[in-house]
Simulated scan of single mutants.
Amino acid sequence: MFHPLRVSAIERITDDAVAVTLSVPAELRETFRHAPGQHLNVRHRVDGEEIRRSYSICAPATEQPDASVLRVGIRRVDGGAFSTYALKELAVGDTVEAMAPTGRFVLDPRPGLYAAIVGGSGITPVLSMVSTLLTREPLARFCLIRSDRTADSTMFLDEVADLKDRYPDRFQLVTALSREEQAAGLPSGRLDRERLTGLLPALLPVPDVDGWFLCGPLGLVRGAEAALRALGADRSRIHQEIFHVADVETSLPAAARAASPSESRLTATLDGRSGSWPVEDGESLLDTMLRSRSDAPYACKGGVCGTCRAFLVSGEVRMDRNFALEPEETGAGFVLACQSHPVTPEVELDFDR
């Protein structure tokens, strides 16, 4: 369900990014209470067409639902309808429709040593994690390794610097710029697998870190995961959220496409209500459901945000791609409805699990 939230502030944080603050009415504060690392799904109409996007919450998470505002970071994407609207037209006093916070890329504050490797706008959910953890857990430490193109393109530069000033003994910051030399710190260049494999052991006892959080472009996240695994990090301690995957090949071999049955039917349960519909040729299970259930959850339709996550009760599906579910989730039977196509004549999904 979408709720209207008033825009109370818009701050330009780089030439191509803004931080948007949304006011939450008292009666919705429990609904919009978030865990550090979660995101908001928002929608807007452009030329009569509904556009949905997912944006991470950068504000710290409160222990009680008493916060009256939410803050999200939005970076302009080439050809991005909503991000262009947010940077050029959205104004204080406007209304944004948003769903309750969602996402499993979260950090539950507790004692220990944590670290993140982020690129570009990947700092947004991690900023919420760091600020929440260091404020609420005095026995926790955090190491942030971030990569950006230039200093001017770095999102939330002041907020991160403030955390460094407030928690000098518990917050370690390492910055790499790919297109600009720094007066101090790492030499310029991308943080790829080879570079991280050499850098990380000098910063942290990699296998002993209680939680690794990787966020940003696909190449950075995949390279960081490979480096961590090579250095002995346990897979269960590595968490990731991927942005910017439009350049990934998604076409399927002819044999995989041929595996779809000539006729199939989807049964799905959402918010306690069940229904059954025929699957039209070539459409995803999400699109099948949307023909009759406009409240079916989704945002990106690209296999990235995880909003359409559902439990596969019965039948078999194939997913075109998956950048949202971790191996433990797929192993437990969860799929992305926006990327799933039937392999068996009957498929049943449960969105309520």
Rank of each mutant, 00 (worst) to 15 (best):
R195H: 02
R45K: 14
R12H: 13
A19L: 12
S236A: 15
G219Q: 12
G37W: 05
C305A: 00
S54W: 03
I238G: 12
V304H: 01
T269D: 05
N322K: 12
F213Y: 15
R237M: 04
K301M: 13
S260E: 15
R293T: 02
T95V: 15
A226M: 07
S56A: 08
S68A: 15
A259R: 13
I51S: 01
L270K: 11
P187R: 06
D108L: 10
C305L: 05
R195F: 03
R71K: 12
V335G: 05
E11T: 14
Q38S: 12
L40R: 10
R291P: 00
R229K: 14
V221F: 06
D208H: 11
A224L: 07
E225D: 02
T288S: 14
G119C: 02
D350H: 01
L199Y: 04
M155Q: 09
E194K: 08
L40S: 10
G275A: 12
I242Y: 05
D208W: 03
V126A: 02
A61F: 01
R71G: 04
F351H: 00
H341L: 11
F142E: 06
R273K: 13
L220P: 03
R12L: 11
V313E: 15
F2L: 14
G80Y: 08
R190S: 07
A26M: 12
R104F: 08
H34T: 12
S153A: 15
P4R: 06
R71Y: 08
E326D: 03
F311N: 02
C143A: 14
P217L: 00
F171Y: 12
S83R: 09
R195C: 06
A337I: 06
T132P: 01
F311C: 05
T288D: 10
E194P: 05
V209I: 15
A59H: 00
R52C: 06
L139N: 11
R149E: 07
A17F: 05
D295Q: 14
V106H: 07
P60I: 01
R257S: 11
G79R: 03
A26N: 13
L40K: 09
D94G: 02
R257A: 06
K301A: 12
A86Y: 03
R166G: 09
M1S: 14
V335S: 00
L70P: 04
L220D: 02
S54V: 08
Y167G: 02
R33C: 12
R104P: 04
L231D: 07
D169L: 13
S284R: 03
E11W: 09
D281P: 06
R104D: 14
R309I: 01
M1P: 12
R235L: 13
M99D: 11
